[in-house]
């Protein structure tokens, strides 16, 4: 038997790969379906960033809460939200996880600790402080993680929340997914410091920057930070430097990117390829194992899309339900 040089078992490695592949296929497929005009509204794809969500979420269980962003599909899948229900939601169908009322930008599944994708930048940070506070009062050992981009990192809500989490020693993790762009604007233009870790330091928070295309780097850094928060060691920041393969949203011509940038990223910074190469080179996983997962995931996504397309629309009554618990 080959020695396993990784901090994960073979099964865990296969799970990680399956999660990343599911996110990738989900997003690639949405890109195609959107172009056909079948998907309503704004869709922000997570392709390229899969290792961030996956490497982090493998340290969490359903008692742990996450607050996501407009680019939330990957967070949802990695946190265990049902792919069929997500697809139904994105198509605006009654079978969606929010019964078609929320759409891509508002997918939520509280039973999985997924407190919602969010259309408002920086809105998740205060909410996750609340999740951390609730976990502390309940004493259940749960942690809260809020995700935000390099752009949303400049929202006052994020900065206020770091201070709040620090003074109350909340079990909260701030995750910056730094993909270099906020819409078309570069992080170099919009953010004065070179590293978000420097900024966290200003609030008394420890932090670490990792290569977000390297699953293992994310996994190891997140493991330490989450463990520390869970054990009462307090909040921290994790910056994942990553890449977004598609435009800001579907329909973005991406002229602000360098020529060949997407191709370069797909060739050299594809977290799935990098992961596959490492685990197969180590002899822990065979190409055939990965190929089997690829086929299973492809079938899952096909079925999710077909099911969503065939699902019923919400009935007119739904328009006025769910506004209050009681009224």
């Amino acid at each position: 038997m080959t020695n396993n040089p990784f901090p994960l078992s073979r099964d865990e490695l296969l799970t990680a790969y399956r999660t990343m592949r599911t996110i990738r296929d989900f997003e690639e497929r949405l890109h195609v379906e959107f172009a056909k005009g079948d998907i309503p509204g704004f869709v922000h794809l997570y392709a390229g960033e899969e290792a961030c969500a996956t490497g982090i979420m493998m340290h969490l269980t359903d008692i742990d809460r996450i607050a996501s962003t407009h680019r939330g599909h990957g967070h949802c899948i990695a946190k265990g939200v049902d792919v069929h229900e997500m697809m139904g939601e994105i198509y605006g169908k009654a079978t969606g996880c929010c019964r078609g009322k929320g759409g891509s930008m508002h997918i939520a599944d509280l039973s999985k600790g997924m407190m919602g994708a969010n259309g408002i930048l920086g809105a998740g940070a205060p909410l996750i402080c609340g999740a951390g506070l609730a976990a502390k009062f309940r004493g259940d050992g749960g942690v809260g993680l809020t995700f935000f981009g390099d752009g949303a990192a400049n929202q006052g809500t994020v900065l206020e929340s770091m201070n709040l989490a620090a003074i109350w020693n909340l079990p909260v993790v701030f995750v910056v997914e730094n993909n270099g762009y906020a819409e078309s604007t570069s992080v170099e233009y919009a953010t004065a410091v070179d590293s978000y870790v420097d900024r966290a330091a200003g609030f008394g928070l420890p932090g670490v920057t990792v290569d977000g295309t390297d699953f293992f780097a994310v996994y190891e850094a997140a493991g330490e930070i989450v463990k520390r928060a869970r054990e009462g060691g307090g909040p921290a920041l994790l910056e994942c430097k990553t890449v977004r393969f598609f435009g800001h949203f579907e329909g973005d011509a991406q002229t602000y990117k360098a020529k060949g940038e997407n191709e370069h990223n797909r060739a050299h910074r594809d977290c799935l390829k990098l992961f596959g190469a490492r685990v197969t080179a180590a002899g822990i996983v065979a190409d055939a194992d990965l190929a089997l997962i690829d086929r299973e995931v492809a079938a899952l996504i096909d079925d999710a899309v077909d099911t969503a397309k065939g699902a019923p629309l919400p009935g007119a009554r739904e328009l006025t339900t769910d506004v209050y618990v009681a009224y």
Binding site: E183, S184, A190, T255
Partner: peptide, 20 residues
């Protein structure tokens, strides 16, 4: 405003967006 020009500091074109 946010991206009212677009492409600030980015390697590609300036005026990439002209607003969302």
């Amino acid at each position: 405003g946010e991206d009212i020009v677009g492409g600030a500091g980015a390697p590609g074109e300036m005026d990439a967006w002209g607003g969302v």
